[in-house]
């Protein structure tokens, strides 16, 4: 596969044109807005919690194929997970998209999220893929502010 076809895999293109959980949640008990000033990606994530568990998640927004597909696949991956489980996946995902090229096997726990492995060959697009996750973290903390890709929160911190 060329770097380009690895970046724009069919799964990513499908999620871009038909995103999952692409709706607002009424009575959400956590929400946050994410913004990537570099390319103008904007997403809004809504959460419905049941104790520690993410019972439901939805999102709205506009952005490039990578950011939209990343948000879509993320919502599908973490629905039903606990906060702590979501955080672990977050860390593994960020590690995958930022690790050196020779380190080529993504964590099996990432499942479908491993389609974003090709992003690391495109340093300018890493923020597009990570925006959803930083916004999710803010929504889990129910921060009433916009997170941007320019203030990367440390997933390990």
């Amino acid at each position: 596969m060329t770097p380009l076809s690895e970046l724009y895999q069919q799964v990513i293109l499908d999620h871009n044109s038909h995103p999952q959980n692409f709706h607002k949640l009424e009575n959400a008990d956590g929400s946050a807005e994410g913004y990537n000033p570099l390319c103008g990606d904007e997403i809004h994530i809504y959460l419905k919690m049941e104790g520690e568990k993410i019972q439901d998640i939805g999102f709205l927004g506009s952005g490039c194929a990578i950011s939209k597909a990343s948000t879509s696949i993320m919502t599908a991956s973490i629905k039903g997970k606990t906060k702590a489980e979501a955080k672990v996946i977050f860390q593994k995902f960020i590690k995958m998209i930022t690790s050196p090229l020779e380190d080529s096997s993504p964590d099996p726990d990432l499942g479908k999220l491993s389609v974003f492995k090709g992003v690391r060959e495109f340093p300018t697009r890493i923020k597009c893929a990570s925006l959803a996750w930083h916004t999710l973290q803010a929504a889990l903390e129910n921060k009433n502010k916009t997170v941007t890709t320019e203030e990367e929160s440390d997933p390990h911190g």
Binding site: T2, P3, L4, L7, Y8, S17, C39, D41, G63, C64, A65, I66, F122, T124, R125, C128
Partner: peptide
């Protein structure tokens, strides 16, 4: 139509 400019830029850069 249907393609974000950021994706356009990445693809034609290749």
């Amino acid at each position: 139509e249907g393609v974000h400019p950021h994706d356009v830029g990445t693809i034609i850069d290749q």
